[in-house]
């Protein structure tokens, strides 16, 4: 909290939140011809596999699509809330990141 903060932007703003939320919705409900149409099915399958081994709360699952240069990265974050695991990990939650690279034209050529 230096005095320089006074001149910085007050808050990061909500536009980024909006973009992240939309990125996954639009990809999920996206047009089959221009986007990876298997995304919704992939997400469903992953969830089903996870559900076999762990009790998962759907609210604790976040799915993100980000562009990184030539790639789009699908990031799936599942928070496992088993109290035994929490103690073992020494953390309030355990993240199981899942990365899958989707071709850059998944969002359609511009």
């Amino acid at each position: 909290m230096s005095w320089l903060d006074y001149f910085r932007k007050s808050s990061p703003g909500s536009a980024n939140v909006a973009k992240e939320r939309l990125a996954i919705i639009v990809a999920r409900e996206g047009r089959s011809q221009t986007k990876a149409s298997y995304l919704p099915q992939l997400r469903q399958d992953i969830l089903q596999v996870l559900a076999k081994y762990e009790k998962i709360d759907l609210d604790q699952v976040t799915v993100n699509v980000e562009s990184q240069g030539e790639y789009q990265v699908l990031e799936l974050n599942v928070v496992l809330s088993d109290p035994a695991n929490v103690r073992k990990m020494g953390n309030s939650s355990r993240h199981a990141p899942f990365f899958s690279e989707v071709k850059s034209n998944a969002f359609g050529a511009r």
Partner: peptide, 20 residues
């Protein structure tokens, strides 16, 4: 508002929808 990060920028919307 876009500059302040309060509104999606035109680039964001273009990227999301992927059209001209």
């Amino acid at each position: 508002r876009v500059v302040k990060g309060e509104m999606l920028s035109h680039k964001d919307v273009i990227e999301l929808l992927g059209i001209d």
